[in-house]
Design a protein around this nucleic acid. Structure first.
Lengths: 338, 338
DNA sequence: ATTGGCACTCCTGACCGCTGAGTGCCAGAG
DNA sequence: CTCTGGCACTCAGCGGTCAGGAGTGCCAAT
């Protein structure tokens, strides 16, 4: 069906189109790439590629442009890994080494990624439910108000002020703190529900309402809601990449929805393989004309995802290696201080 | 120089141009507004206005467009306050009442503001240095690592993990906590430096290195760095407002710089008066073709700023009242739970 | 001071024909 | 059966021309 040379032609088309953003014709193709055949032959191959749906001509007398299917074939079979340049490696290291805070790590990575790929970058904060609890703290603010602080081994700190149903003494708070630490410390947050389920029953009756309140907060606020943090950078690159103007608006809108961003990264759980979603493959309405390159990061098991988003006409090889490299560094950073 | 009617003409020009985004001519003007004079008269007035630099003609046979100076005159003298519609009031209330968290308040306000004005909205987190300390907590994570947590009366919680120069016992940490609370609680963070300055001298010698470390963290991290948080929403509205494409890129770039955003809001310290910066009045390179409407918010004294950014051709009256209204609500929200 | 009239400018959109890039097809060569 | 050169065809893009229209500036009259 598609012999070696046709694939080679497809690869050349994708590369040229990505570079120039103009439909590429048979003549240009044989000029710029050493295909060893004449334009006429290339035309035949292109005709075949068009029949198979890998490329398409915007209009009769124009060159061809890759379709989503064409890009798909390109990333799956044709693109060769593009190693990062020395400068890029240096940039990554110098960018990420100075980071103290978790916030800092995330913010720097997202900017770095945007800069490296010249595209929109997204980095998810380490997911709480996949982290384990390093420490829990109860701070007694006023008699009937405490602050619950939870620190995970990925360095993330979540806190929440809780109104109590009844005032408590300092001693009770100390007891509660010990109780929570005993139950939660060292455990993954995904097991928090199970670890706490028998608490109200096991405790003194007068503490039960307090405990249920606390449990609700731990479970609802810290586990579910807090999942949803992401950082974004490089939106200005959307203009550079010559996306048509009318296309931009829905994209910008989608990027403001945290939910959407999480969906983009959510499926990329595996820190070893890069996911690429191209154009229409994308589930999110409004991002149908863009591609997403994403991966999970984390020491061993994935704590979250990160990736870049750009026009389908993007440098896949470069993006893939940048995304992979940044993910590895971020994983190391978060693995280090644990 | 500029009699009553000329100003009326200027107002009409601004209003029409804002509504239609097209240069407005004398004929359209007398049709749409009850000026009571003929087009020819209006032409004379327009000619005068052009001589004074309030309006300009893009080319010979086009209508006139307001200049920055024209808009300035409009907001200073000509625009009448546009009261919010009932629907808008309802939107504000329902949007902001459900908010528990400070994060929640900020995020909701910024989205609300973007939605109300159909422009880019910016909300600064309550500035720490202008808040007072409600509580300080030291959490002993490992022998030589503590977490410092600081809660302000605006509901903001900042935390930071500190590596200690030497391991500490639990008792020492308890002592330190008491010390910090005694020195800081109830005081504005801007006085933190003064309140802590004599600490190392006053304490037991073996604690001095620890105290200096802690002080550094309190001052550098919590007071200075943390100043810089802002929330952003509505970037997609940039496309809607028919800013020319080449203009958009620098704007998007500027919006990604926290520093720039803070500069925009920084001068708006007063919660009673709305600041409007128009086009070239703007200090930030790249935002020269946009206008910023901003105000301070907070109970009594300003805790931070918020505002919107859009093309110079924007609905100033509407933006001003929306910005003012949201600021008032946010101020109330933050004043309430203190 | 205001107004109607008038000549002038020049943007806009439509129409036209040319050019060039690119294609598809075919017949011939290897 | 594959490749190639040749050739006719298509059509977007470009530049030029032209008419229409919106808008202006100026002037003389009220």
């Amino acid at each position: 069906m598609l012999d070696e040379r046709k694939l080679e032609v497809l690869r050349a088309i994708v590369e040229d189109f990505v570079a120039t953003n103009e439909p590429v014709g048979s003549k240009h193709l044989v000029e710029r790439h050493r295909l060893g055949v004449s334009p006429a032959t290339v035309r035949n191959d292109m005709s075949a590629l068009e029949d198979e749906g890998y490329i398409v001509a915007p209009h009769t007398s124009a060159g061809r442009v890759p379709t989503d299917k064409g890009y798909r074939m390109f990333v799956d079979q044709l693109s060769t890994v593009k190693p990062l340049s020395a400068a890029e490696r240096r940039a990554i290291e110098s960018f990420l080494t100075g980071a103290a805070d978790l916030d800092d790590v995330v913010r720097r990575s997202v900017r770095l990624l945007a800069q490296l790929t010249r595209q929109v970058a997204v980095v998810q904060y380490p997911s709480l439910s996949r982290s384990t609890v390093r420490h829990v703290e109860l701070v007694h603010l006023t008699p009937n108000r405490v602050m619950l602080v939870m620190i995970t081994d990925s360095g993330r700190v979540e806190q929440r002020v809780v109104e109590l149903p009844a005032p408590l003494s300092d001693e009770t708070v100390t007891d509660l703190r010990a109780l929570l630490i005993a139950r939660l410390a060292g455990r993954p947050l995904s097991e928090a529900a199970a670890a706490l389920s028998d608490l109200p029953g096991a405790a003194a009756p007068q503490l039960r309402p307090v405990l249920t309140t606390l449990m609700t907060v731990v479970l609802e606020t810290l586990v579910e809601k807090a999942e949803e943090r992401v950082a974004l950078a490089g939106t200005a690159n959307l203009t550079h990449s010559a996306l048509d103007f009318p296309i931009m608006r829905p994209v910008l809108e989608a990027l403001e929805e945290q939910v959407v961003l999480l969906k983009l990264l959510g499926e990329a759980n595996d820190p070893t393989t890069v996911h690429v979603r191209i154009g229409e493959e994308n589930q999110v309405e409004g991002l149908r004309s863009t591609s997403v390159v994403s991966i999970g990061y984390g020491p061993g098991t994935a704590l979250g995802g990160l990736g870049v988003l750009g026009p389908t006409r993007m440098d896949y090889a470069g993006s893939i290696s940048a995304v992979r490299a940044v993910a590895r560094y971020v994983g190391e950073m978060l693995g280090g201080p644990s």
